[in-house]
């Protein structure tokens, strides 16, 4: 009976949650694509295509922006946090669908990444509570989303380290709950991020502000 429950949360529930998640995102993107898009029309000074490439690449080069140059620690936090999130999400696929790859060293490496994300998450939460410039713009969703990711990280790490049934069930239940919540929260920023970087690259590339000027 209990094994069947684990199987259910590991496979069926994940597929249901992922389907709802994908459907909601498809709806989000559809709503966005229906809106008018005021495109740049001025003759090109630079390359839009290169602009888009640079726009996405900037994120990976902390020296490309004053904000990340001045706050290199924040960029490192960002990298660790998203590596942790990547590992935690990856686990939701590899554990049920590709168990052969989840050897002990792989599980522990992923756990280390997730713990790194967890520590950074705690720092982010503390900063949001303590820093006045963040407090004035924070909504309940800001605090809850950070806390929810912390819970997700915690259960992921425990599942990866112990590989115990109980932690696994908790991990997959949390994952499913997470998938249902994410499209409504600020965690969905990554969907908009893709569009924002494209818009930025097109505009700043065409105008020759980034990615060099066309002769």
């Amino acid at each position: 009976m209990e094994d069947r429950f684990l199987e259910f949360v590991k496979f069926d529930l994940q597929i249901i949650a992922l389907s709802v998640f994908a459907l909601l995102y498809a709806l989000k993107v559809y709503q966005l694509m229906k809106l008018p898009w005021p495109k740049e029309m001025g003759p090109r000074r630079g390359s839009e295509e290169l602009g888009v490439v640079y726009s996405f690449a900037w994120l990976f080069f902390p020296w490309s922006m004053s904000s990340t140059t001045q706050h290199l620690g924040r960029w490192v936090e960002f990298a660790l946090y998203h590596l942790g999130a990547g590992a935690a999400i990856l686990g939701t696929f590899t554990i049920p669908f590709w168990p052969a790859i989840m050897t002990r060293p792989v599980s522990l490496t992923m756990a280390v990444l997730v713990i790194g994300g967890f520590i950074v998450g705690a720092i982010k939460l503390a900063r949001r509570i303590l820093a006045p410039e963040l407090r004035v713009v924070s909504t309940p969703d800001d605090y809850f989303s950070l806390a929810a990711v912390e819970v997700f990280f915690f259960f992921t790490a425990m599942a990866l380290i112990t590989e115990a049934r109980g932690w696994m069930i908790a991990y997959f239940l949390i994952t499913a709950a997470f998938l249902f919540y994410v499209p409504f929260s600020k965690i969905s920023h990554y969907v908009y991020w893709f569009f924002a970087r494209v818009f930025f690259g097109l505009r700043y590339g065409r105008r020759g502000i980034i990615a060099g000027k066309k002769a």
Binding site: R127, V137, D142, K186, S188, H189, Y192
Partner: peptide, 9 residues
Amino acid sequence: SNLCVHCGL
């Protein structure tokens, strides 16, 4: 949208 995560950078 929710693009801005209020990171404060």
